[in-house]
């Protein structure tokens, strides 16, 4: 790190933010059109995603060049640390909204639906036992068990946390092989997790009659596991980017916050899974 960098790095004017804005406008407008079957929805939607990918490559590429070019001093590094922490906090609150919904449904509203006037006048015979697809459910379904694939997935994610930490130790001690192998193992474990998750969804739809439309159980199950899976996907992409940066010789033992941020994110996704495993699959 260059000790003369006591001045805080302020970037030059950049074209990337406006591309991001155009991307999200196309993404949002395309999604609205697609959902309502008006106009060329899918085209606009995927165009938005394409612009977003261009923007992410360009923007992050520039940040990587600035970082490797030694433009970031200690205070910029501190800014990155603070901001990643607060970003993960915002993600925690995002998941909290869905977990809160699940708790409210299971502890309060479903029992209310099966008691008192609701039961007597509206939904006679509704017992309110969890899991439920609601008082009007016509078909039966089988809830997802905890001790098959989900338990295996728990083991996989926990192991991936360990391999990532092992890779980080390699980075700090300058053992690039350990770094590379640890990172590769982590990515493979993450992809295995995602593969199992996709298999589990097929299994749910094909064998268990469990769908997104299966009342409140299906809604909460797929929403929580789906958003978690999306976050694992994002984490795996981040890890892959780190892998290619390692291959390109990036990161030094004292300057590798991008790697650490990815690790923080991965551990966060891991912790969410543990809560998910207990309250969605197990209990």
């Amino acid at each position: 790190m260059n000790p003369s960098l006591d001045k805080y790095f302020v970037p030059e004017p950049s074209k990337y933010p406006i591309f991001g804005s155009i991307a999200l406008l196309l993404f949002g407008a395309g999604a609205v059109m697609w959902l309502n079957e008006v106009g060329p929805g899918p085209i606009v939607f995927f165009l938005g995603i394409a612009v977003l990918i261009y923007m992410l490559f360009g923007w992050f590429g520039q940040v990587v060049r600035e970082s490797e070019g030694g433009k970031y001093g200690k205070r910029v590094d501190a800014s990155f640390r603070w901001s990643m922490g607060w970003f993960i906090f915002s993600e925690v609150m995002f998941f909290a909204a869905f977990f809160g919904a699940l708790f409210y449904i299971r502890v309060l509203s479903v029992p209310w639906l099966a008691s008192g006037d609701n039961e007597a006048l509206l939904w006679q015979g509704f017992t309110g036992n969890w899991p439920t697809a609601g008082p009007t459910a016509a078909e039966t379904f089988t809830p997802m068990g905890a001790w098959g694939i989900p338990a295996l997935n728990t083991l996989i994610l926990l192991t991936s946390g360990a391999t990532l930490t092992w890779a980080h130790h390699g980075l700090i001690k300058g053992r690039r092989d350990q770094l590379r192998n640890g990172l590769l193992m982590t990515i493979l474990l993450g992809l295995t997790f995602l593969g199992f998750q996709i298999y589990e969804y097929f299994h749910a739809y094909a064998d268990l009659n469990l769908r997104l439309t299966t009342g409140i159980y299906g809604s909460t199950f797929f929403m929580l596991t789906g958003f978690h899976g999306l976050h694992v996907t994002i984490g795996a992409i981040m890890l892959t980017v780190m892998f290619f940066r390692v291959q390109a010789g990036h990161f030094r033992p004292d300057h590798h916050f991008a790697f650490e941020a990815t690790a923080w994110y991965w551990h966060f996704v891991d912790v969410v899974w543990l809560i998910l495993f207990v309250v969605v699959y197990w209990l």
């Binding site: 919904a101 409210y104 449904i105 509203s109 479903v110 209310w112 639906l113 439920t132 697809a133 609601g134 008082p135 009007t136 459910a137 769908r211 997104l212 439309t213 009342g215 409140i216 159980y217 299906g218 809604s219 909460t220 797929f222 929403m223």
Partner: peptide
């Protein structure tokens, strides 16, 4: 087709 806010599907 989720039922978060639909009592018929067990939501609220």
């Amino acid at each position: 087709g989720t039922s978060f806010f639909n009592a018929a599907g067990g939501g609220d």
